[in-house]
Design a protein around this nucleic acid. Structure first.
Lengths: 330, 330
DNA sequence: GTGAAAGCGCTAACAG
DNA sequence: CTGTTAGCGCTTTCAC
């Protein structure tokens, strides 16, 4: 493969000059610059980023560590992170932790060996800030990690929005399908939801599961497979996937949404607006999160501990929620 | 950051010895080996993969180029590729082309600068095999690219399976929602479906769109928003997302699936089994594809041109298809 | 078996 | 403004 020396020789200049032309910053005479650029094109020279990375002691890559790429929210996040990074001339190294703390540690250690410019991490558990060297900018997204600032939607506030919505619709018998208790994001959403309800004198029935379709379906069945009078009139879930699973359970049990049951999710994944009924949910500013994350990673600043950036979620009302009255009317 | 020299000095050996210990292949005396390993642990030494990559002229990374990570099928593919790669000690560089040929070229050129061990590419169009250097193993997955072998599910055969299923159910008035005509994968699935129907003397109505929910919904509406007698009794789609969009359109128009309309998709994304009604579809062996892709990338072999590896899809019957008779009965 | 030393291809001083 | 040169941290002959 052709290297900088070949180019320099052919263009009749020194390697330093070629390097400066590529960096397009230095003061290189117009004549030489053109000649070099022509030669680069002509020889189809692709500068070796590995060598450059070695010399610069940092590569043009950012590591992205997420629990699960098949979760539409993280897929969306990855998509935007990749787009913004690419635009900034960076590549993204993808790591999937599969919600396994051991793998998470291994993945991060492995990433670090490539000396990336920055790390964007959606951690599994808040415990033990990994002792990875402070010389790689780290921005922690969506879920809290000890010793780091957090860039995320305001889980607590967003969940409160959901609670408010259900209360406003007249619901009093309300259940909540939470995420795994060891995930701080679950706790934040749950707390935001529950506290808001309790302030209104309502005590929701709470049940815990994973952030996926299957869990939503199983837990939904558990909540709904009982005498109509004992069923909640509204259920909120910790994310949209659970809500979609719940919708499926309701359908299987012949329970009409939203007439007999209101359902509200969290995330506003693309699918939320397409299933039947269209899902009412709390939308996240994913693109904005991605932009800020990449910017912080590049700036080398990360998000300082204690300096959280919490972005507001927004209530998206669609067809899975309705006034409780409708049910009595039936 | 501590480097190999620091370790060598502290352990009282030469850098060569440390290197050999890490490569865990050479013949290093047990005593020295232990001493070095202890020192590595003690100093928390993380070998610099950038330097190693420079020296080896190849990094421990594989590039993964896909059109759209929010497409559940590709997310699934990425998940498995990442898992297999990680297991083999490789990192994955993620590129998303967003179905834009210009970006695809730029992404690949950019990836190559990092001198990855191999490239796994889901190309956008079959045209112009990019003139990237033959010195990077390239395995082309899912969609054909001129000058390369293809590793993929058998689109043609899978679609024929779908056609066979609908015919067997007694459907005669059948429509097909295809993918974009410029994508070979669309053409393969469409051809497999249409040819099989025509062999049975049926000429389907065909309509084209993109591989996403929105397109499926719009096209579905177009196909269904007409007098009942003029509507197809069954619609097959080029992928599950379109099918899900179609289901939504049917629901909006008050058309019962599967009683009044049978729907069959392609891919068997996780969601397919969870929506209402559960979607009948053609399942892909994603994990197997991922395994083979990574193996080929590592082996440096790629998939030789003309040596396609076509894996069989499998018909997954769920609740979105039913005998045409049911409708007449209503 | 182990050490010494020559690069991998580039960037960034430093000269001129 | 441009050329020269010393490494970046590792692997890999080549000696011993």
């Amino acid at each position: 493969m052709v290297n900088i020396k070949d180019v320099a020789r052919r263009a009749g200049v020194s390697v330093g000059t070629v390097s400066r032309v590529m960096a397009r910053n230095e003061t290189v005479g117009a004549a030489l610059r053109e000649k070099v650029e022509a030669t680069i094109r002509e020889m189809n020279f692709k500068p070796n980023h590995v060598a450059r990375g070695l010399r610069r002691r940092r590569t043009d890559m950012i590591g992205l560590v997420i629990p699960d790429i098949t979760n539409p929210f993280f897929a969306e996040l990855a998509k935007h992170v990749e787009a913004v990074a690419f635009h900034a001339g960076l590549s993204v190294l993808l790591s999937i932790t599969n919600d396994d703390p051991k793998i998470e540690v291994a993945q991060i250690e492995s990433l670090l060996k490539s000396r990336p410019t920055g790390l964007i991490v959606v951690p599994i558990q808040s415990g033990q800030s990994q002792s990875w060297r402070g010389d790689t900018a780290t921005v922690v997204v969506d879920r809290r990690l000890q010793g780091h600032g957090l860039l995320s939607v305001d889980h607590h506030g967003g969940a409160a929005l959901a609670a408010e919505h259900l209360i406003g619709l007249g619901h009093r018998h309300i259940a909540y399908i939470a995420g795994p208790a060891d995930a701080p994001v679950s706790r934040a959403r749950r707390a935001g939801f529950v506290e808001h309800l309790e302030a209104a004198g309502i005590k929701p029935e709470i049940i815990e599961g994973h952030f996926d379709y299957v869990s939503g379906e199983a837990l939904g069945r558990q909540l709904l497979d009982r005498a109509p009078a004992k069923r909640p009139t509204a259920i909120a879930t910790a994310n949209d996937q659970q809500a979609i699973g719940l919708l499926r359970a309701a359908s299987d049990l012949g329970i009409k949404v939203p007439d007999e049951l209101s359902v509200i999710g969290f995330d506003d994944i693309p699918l939320a607006g397409l299933i039947t009924p269209r899902l009412t949910t709390i939308g996240q500013p994913v693109e904005d999160i991605a932009k800020r994350a990449v910017a912080a990673a590049i700036a080398g600043s990360g998000v300082a501990a204690g300096e959280d950036e919490l972005l507001s979620g927004v209530l998206v009302v669609r067809n899975s929620t309705a006034p409780v009255g409708r049910r009595e009317a039936v």
